[in-house]
C-alpha cells in the first residue's frame, strides 16, 4: 500500500484579523512579519489519516508531497516527523500563480511519476483559498474515484471505506483503489511529533522535482479560473453600542433595537 498525502503550506491562519494584509496590486496576501507559514490544517489531518492506516499495517508507505516555494519543504518535514516515509517537493518558477487545476495537474503528474500509488489523501480544502477542489481535480486527472469530507479512512482488500461527514448525516462510502479521499477535521487532531521524530525526519529521503521532472510544460498550466482582484472587504457596519447605567438598561435597549430591526 502506497499512500500519497498532498499538503499545502499557507500563511498562519490563526493571527488576529487586524494583522491580515493584502497587496491589492500583486493580488497576494502579505505574510505577517515574524509569523512562520504553517501546514494547512486539513492537510495535517490528512497526514494523520495516512498514519492511522500505517499504524494498522506497518508495510504501508506514505509519501508527503507539496507544491510550493522552497519553504514548503518544512510542510513536508512536518509530515515526515509525524511518521511518513518520503517527501516530494514540487517547486519551479512556472508553478507560481497556478489555479487549482494547474496545481492538481502538477500533483497528478508527480503521482503518476511515483507510479505505484494506491491512495491519495488531501485536506478537504486549503485554509487560504478555501476552494476545496484540488483533490477532486487530481482524481479526475488520474482517472480515480473521489470521496470527500472523510472522518475515517480504512483500506482492505483493494477497497477504501470512508465515513463521509455531511451536515445532516454520516455516510459510509466504498470505493475501489486507487482512489482519492479528502479529509475533514472530524477525523481528529494530527499527532504531535516527538523531538526524536523531528530529528529523524531530516534524514528521510526527499525528492525535489521541477516541471520538466514530472513531464509538464508551462503551456499546459495556464489558468482557467483567473484572479482579477483580491481585497480586504470594508466592514461598513459601525457597531452601535447599547447605552445604559445598568445591564438591565443595556439589555432593554438592545431588545428594543432588535425589535425595531425586525430581528426578534
Amino acid at each position: 500500500m502506497h499512500i500519497v498525502v498532498c499538503v499545502k503550506q499557507v500563511p498562519d491562519w490563526d493571527i488576529p484579523p487586524s494583522s491580515f494584509k493584502v497587496d491589492e496590486g500583486a493580488k497576494k496576501v502579505v505574510p505577517p512579519a515574524g509569523v512562520a507559514p504553517v501546514v494547512s490544517q486539513f492537510d495535517a489531518i490528512a497526514v494523520e489519516a495516512a498514519m492511522r492506516i500505517k499504524d494498522a499495517d506497518a508495510s504501508t508507505k506514505v509519501t508527503v508531497m507539496s507544491l510550493g516555494p522552497a519553504t514548503a519543504r518544512d510542510a513536508i518535514k512536518n509530515g515526515l516527523a509525524m511518521g511518513a516515509d518520503e517527501g516530494a517537493l514540487l517547486t519551479d518558477d512556472v508553478f507560481n500563480n497556478l489555479d487549482s487545476l494547474g496545481t492538481a495537474n502538477v500533483l497528478a503528474a508527480a503521482i503518476k511519476k511515483l507510479g505505484d500509488v494506491d491512495l491519495v489523501l488531501t485536506g478537504r480544502q486549503a485554509v487560504d483559498w478555501d476552494l476545496g477542489v484540488t483533490g477532486t481535480y487530481i482524481a479526475e486527472i488520474i482517472g480515480a474515484p473521489v470521496v470527500t469530507f472523510a472522518k475515517s479512512v480504512t483500506v482492505s482488500g483493494g477497497n477504501v471505506t470512508v465515513e463521509r461527514v455531511l451536515p445532516d448525516a454520516v455516510e459510509t462510502v466504498e470505493s475501489p483503489l486507487p482512489a482519492v479521499v479528502t479529509v475533514s477535521n472530524e477525523l481528529g487532531e494530527p499527532r504531535y511529533p516527538k523531538l526524536q521524530q523531528i530529528m529523524a525526519a531530516t534524514k528521510k529521503p526527499m525528492n525535489t522535482w521541477a516541471a520538466a521532472d514530472v513531464g509538464l510544460d508551462a503551456g499546459a498550466l495556464a489558468p482557467k479560473l483567473t484572479l482579477e482582484a483580491l481585497y480586504v472587504p470594508v466592514v461598513d457596519t459601525k457597531v452601535e453600542l447599547m447605552e445604559g447605567d445598568t445591564p438591565e438598561e443595556q439589555a432593554m435597549a438592545l431588545a428594543r433595537r432588535l425589535k425595531e430591526a425586525k430581528l426578534i
Binding site: F20, D128, L225, E228, A229, L230, V232, P233
Partner: peptide, 10 residues
C-alpha cells in the same frame, strides 16, 4: 477567501 478575511474576484 482566507477564512473570510479577504474577497477574491474571479
Amino acid at each position: 477567501a482566507y477564512g473570510g478575511n479577504a474577497r477574491a474576484v474571479n
